[in-house]
Simulated assay, not measured.
Amino acid sequence: MDTCFINSPLGITKIEGDENGISIISILSEGVVSNKIPENLKEAVSQLLEYFDGKRTDFSFKTNPKGTEFQQKVWQELCNIPFGKTINYLDLAKKLGDPKVIRASASANGKNPLWIVVPCHRVVGTDGSLTGYAGGLWRKKWLLEHENPTTQQSLF
Rank of each mutant, 00 (worst) to 15 (best):
E16K: 14
W142S: 06
G125S: 11
L90T: 13
F52E: 02
V123F: 03
V45G: 02
S46I: 05
N40F: 00
C79T: 10
L78S: 01
Q153C: 08
G21Q: 04
I12D: 02
T63Q: 01
K95H: 10
L130F: 12
A106C: 06
T68W: 06
F156Y: 13
G11C: 09
V45K: 03
L90Q: 11
Q152L: 13
I6D: 02
L114W: 01
I22C: 01
N109R: 15
I37M: 05
G136W: 04
W142H: 12
N80E: 13
H146Q: 07
D2C: 07
C79S: 11
D91K: 09
I81G: 00
Q72D: 05
G110W: 07
S26N: 11
E19L: 09
N88H: 11
I15D: 00
W138E: 12
A44V: 05
P99E: 14
V74M: 04
K14R: 15
T57A: 10
P99R: 10
G128K: 07
P119G: 06
P113T: 14
E43H: 08
I37V: 11
E145L: 06
Q47I: 07
I37A: 05
Q76N: 14
L48R: 01
L143E: 01
I81S: 01
D53T: 06
I22K: 00
I6W: 06
E30A: 14
P65Q: 05
Y89E: 05
K94A: 07
S154T: 10
S60P: 00
F156H: 10
K94L: 11
K111A: 08
N80I: 04
D98A: 13
K36L: 14
S154I: 08
R103S: 14
K140C: 01
A104F: 07
R122L: 06
F61Y: 14
N80C: 08
G132Y: 12
T63P: 00
P113E: 15
E77P: 01
S29R: 09
L143H: 01
S60A: 10
S105L: 06
E16Y: 03
Q153I: 15
K100L: 13
Q153R: 14
I81T: 05
P82Q: 08
L90H: 07
V124M: 09
N7T: 15
L78Q: 02
H121K: 03
L78M: 09
G136I: 06
K95S: 10
V32I: 15
T13S: 03
L28E: 15
